[in-house]
């Protein structure tokens, strides 16, 4: 099942040229671009692992793409996303975030039903990938 999180996630995967143009837009707005990875794709897992440092002082998208290529080499079998942080007063938050890398196989999510008081049912989802310990989940 294809993971849909963040901007552009219902579009086909962006090409590198398209990613570079999005990154350039973010840099032109003065946002710091971060590369983040995870192997736990649960939608409530908001804090992914940061790759390197936030790129505060990069002027051109080529610098970010260099780092992304490096990250893909190491974490090709994880989810990779780019996020752009706006540090300006009043925002101080992520303004743009989209997935730029995903594992070859995405097993999807299991719907978990829990019996609660009375005959109530509580629902949650669990990624099939997280059945295995971190580090062995994909590939």
């Amino acid at each position: 099942m294809r993971l849909t999180q963040g901007t552009f996630s219902f579009l086909p995967d962006l090409t590198d040229a398209q990613i570079a143009r999005q990154v350039q837009y973010a840099l032109d707005q003065g946002w710091a671009v971060n590369i983040e990875t995870t192997d736990d794709p649960h939608p409530r897992n908001t804090y992914w692992d940061l790759w390197g440092q936030p790129m505060f002082d990069v002027a051109d998208a080529a610098g970010v793409m260099l780092e992304l290529a490096e990250c893909r080499k190491v974490f090709g079998e994880r989810y990779i996303r780019l996020s752009a942080f706006d540090a300006s007063h009043g925002w101080e938050t992520i303004r743009l975030s989209f997935i730029v890398g995903r594992p070859a196989e995405e097993p999807g999510f299991h719907l978990v039903r829990e019996e609660a008081e009375g005959r109530r049912l509580r629902y949650t989802t669990r990624s099939y990938a997280t059945e295995r310990p971190a580090g062995q989940r994909y590939g």
Partner: peptide, 11 residues
């Protein structure tokens, strides 16, 4: 070195 190159990209 890569950090510097990253900063200099496009310039």
């Amino acid at each position: 070195t890569k950090e510097v190159l990253k900063k200099a990209m496009g310039g």
